[in-house]
């Protein structure tokens, strides 16, 4: 219990939850700091609603990126897929250098406004760290272990499931962690094409010159990212293989 109290995840999470549920409590603060802006608190959508939508976008794209990234990593580390290793990495790097804003602009004509182009952009942007870490994690499993496993009669699938993936898990998780954390920040631009995120107050505030909205959106998205990162930290500690 004391250990739970000591983790910053709890405290930052609490701060995040309070702001999320009761931002209007800060109304007097914003009224004093920015007397020209009314209403003081962004009210085109509830913060809870923004959070759920933001969370949904990141979750959908991250689950897809994790699934595809892992599948590709597993494929290119098999004997049959080894020739595609460089190609897969290159593709992931290419889609990483396209700014998500550009991907959004290209995706809108095909998918329309709303959450869909945002999910596509986040998916492509989040793929590289997952793919790279999964490949590195699997390739870093010592040859001697693979050799011993094969020599004892483990099938390729058993070797993957019982040896390679458990040993690569911390590195794979680190990739997912980076991908998700970056994705939370990047998702805000989805609001430029009509998705609801913490970016919505930010862009509204920028367009209407209402700084409090920008602050409200920015603080929430930052806290969201930090809490998520801290939670991944806890998960990583739990997932660490017992033999290390």
């Amino acid at each position: 219990m004391t250990r739970t109290l000591k983790t910053p995840a709890l405290w930052v999470g609490l701060l995040f939850a309070i702001l999320l549920l009761d931002m209007p409590a800060l109304r007097p603060l914003f009224a004093v700091s920015f007397p020209a802006v009314t209403p003081e608190i962004f009210d085109r959508a509830g913060f809870g609603e923004l959070f759920l939508s933001h969370l949904g976008l990141v979750a959908a794209s991250s689950v897809a990126a994790t699934f595809v990234g892992m599948a590709l990593a597993i494929f290119v580390t098999r004997p049959a897929g080894r020739d595609f290793r460089t190609t897969a990495n290159m593709l992931a790097i290419i889609d990483q250098v396209f700014p998500p804003a550009a991907v959004l602009a290209l995706a809108v004509p095909a998918l329309g406004f709303g959450p869909k182009p945002t999910i596509v952009a986040l998916f492509l942007y989040g793929l590289l760290p997952i793919l790279e870490n999964a490949i590195a994690g699997i390739e870093n499993v010592p040859t001697a272990l693979r050799e011993a496993g094969r020599g004892m009669g483990l099938s390729p699938y058993q070797l993957l499931r019982d040896v390679e993936l458990p040993l690569a898990a911390p590195v794979i998780l680190a990739g997912v962690r980076v991908s998700v954390t970056i994705g939370i920040g990047t998702a805000t631009i989805g609001s430029t094409v009509g998705a609801l995120t913490f970016g919505t107050p930010i862009f509204d505030g920028l367009a209407g010159n209402k700084l409090p909205y920008v602050l409200q959106g920015a603080v929430l998205v930052a806290l969201f990212a930090i809490v998520t990162d801290l939670l991944f930290g806890l998960l990583a500690r739990r997932l660490r293989p017992p033999g290390s």
């Binding site: 001697a144 011993a148 020599g151 009669g153 040993l167 033999g243």
Partner: peptide
């Protein structure tokens, strides 16, 4: 091959013990 290997004991340098 897998059936064959399961009938044969196999030990290598640096043991190849699974650390986890």
């Amino acid at each position: 091959p897998q059936a064959l290997r399961r009938q044969i004991g196999y030990a290598i340098q640096s043991t190849g013990l699974f650390p986890h």
